[in-house]
Computed example of a mutant assay.
Amino acid sequence: MNHQEMTQKIARGDGFIAALDQSGGSTPKALTGYGYQGNEWSDDEAMFGLIHDMRTRIVKADSFASGKVIGAILFERTMDGEIDGKPVPQVLIDKGIVPFIKIDKGLEDEVDGVQLMKPMPTVTDLLIRARDLGVFGTKERSVINLANAEGIRRAVEQQFDVARQVLAHDLVPIIEPEVSIKSPERAEADRMLLAAILSQLNSIPNGQQVMLKLTLPHEAGLFQPLVDHPKVLRVVALSGGFSRAEACAELARNPGMIASFSRALLSDLRHDHSDDDFDRTLGTAIGEIYDASTARVPG
């Protein structure tokens, strides 16, 4: 796939984007969810080796190449790694799956109800490396915990500042200002976020597009103006702590949004599964998420 073909697949393809981008802070939790006890690794290298083995098994599974997964978000070390001697992004491309890379370095402490992204001093080098490896786009995450208009404005402004850097390197940014599903002000935070994003979209040059990765809104259909916006290539949803069943049910109530799930996709996989059980379990999750991503259930 060339860049234009990837753009068309993401813009119009039926399916969803798998989030395989657990980073250093979230990797131990991902591995314990995968059935490890926590004493199987003694240092970061061993830990990252186990998570790479997990991702390799996922990517090589027949169900992952079923056509229902149209994109995958990678962690930097995964992007730089290989599967059977071939760079991971190229393995995905060969399977018809569009590769993305997580570029944020984690979150700052909460101020004004939001957690901004930490500084990214090496982002230019990462963007160049990603583009050279055939990566299509990036993903960067901040978190909104409260309906604080100033905090939300700053979080979205920071996201779009990074997005313009990404666009300048001929990559497509996925902007992810996650509203916590535990927020006591979730519905109002959703509305403030919508207004802030619509305002910032005006700063994107004509002819360029961004993607958005958002928490499934408290009010179904709230983000339809973003789904329909000419400067938005696609709106994808994070599972945000919902179970797969809950996330799929909510997603189906928001036509036009597709999934970009991590935990909801991988939660039933175990490292000691036989290959057949692994593929069958992954295939079940992929099928359910695909159905929800392609459903057209009015909110």
Results as ranks from 00 to 15, higher is better:
A155Y: 05
A237T: 00
D279H: 02
L222C: 11
A19R: 04
K213R: 10
I181L: 07
K139T: 02
I10G: 03
E150K: 15
R57F: 03
V297R: 14
K68I: 06
S23K: 15
S26W: 11
S23Y: 08
E150F: 13
D80S: 09
E288S: 02
L266H: 10
E40N: 02
V91A: 08
T294V: 15
F100T: 05
L133D: 12
D14R: 15
Y36L: 07
L107K: 12
A11Y: 00
L74Q: 11
A163Y: 06
L20C: 07
G256F: 13
R12C: 11
D62Y: 08
F16P: 04
G151V: 13
T294H: 09
D43L: 04
S199E: 15
T122G: 13
A249L: 11
K213F: 04
A195R: 08
L20S: 00
L74N: 03
I174G: 12
E246W: 03
F160H: 10
R191V: 13
A196C: 05
P298G: 05
E108L: 03
R55G: 11
Y36V: 04
F223E: 11
D291L: 10
I128V: 14
S274K: 02
I51W: 01
D14K: 15
Q4G: 12
P225V: 00
I83D: 01
Q209E: 09
E108T: 04
A30L: 05
D279K: 07
N39L: 08
M211I: 07
E250S: 09
R77F: 01
I204L: 09
I58F: 05
L133M: 13
I258F: 06
I258T: 15
L92Y: 04
L31N: 08
A72T: 03
L222I: 13
L126V: 15
Q22C: 00
N2F: 05
Q208K: 14
A264N: 05
G85C: 07
I286L: 07
G38P: 08
L214Q: 04
V236A: 00
L116G: 00
V210P: 07
G15C: 07
R234W: 05
K9P: 06
M6T: 01
R131K: 14
E140P: 01
A61E: 08
V232P: 11
N145F: 01
F261L: 05
F100L: 15
M120W: 08
T284Q: 09
H229M: 08
G13S: 03
D291A: 14
G151N: 02
A220V: 06
R153F: 06
D268M: 13
L216G: 11
L20E: 00
D275W: 11
Y34S: 06
V235F: 09
R129K: 15
S293W: 12
R55D: 13
P121S: 02
T215E: 06
D190Q: 10
I83N: 02
A292S: 10
V123N: 03
L238S: 09
A195E: 13
K102Y: 00
I128W: 15
M257F: 08
D228H: 10
P89Y: 07
L226I: 09
T215Y: 02
S260A: 10
V98G: 04
P225S: 01
H169A: 01
D277G: 08
R129G: 15
M1I: 04
F75I: 00
D277T: 14
H218N: 06
T27F: 00
A220H: 14
I97C: 07
D272H: 14
Q22L: 01
H271W: 14
A264Y: 09
G241M: 13
I175N: 12
P121D: 02
F160N: 07
Q159A: 07
A295N: 11
M117H: 03
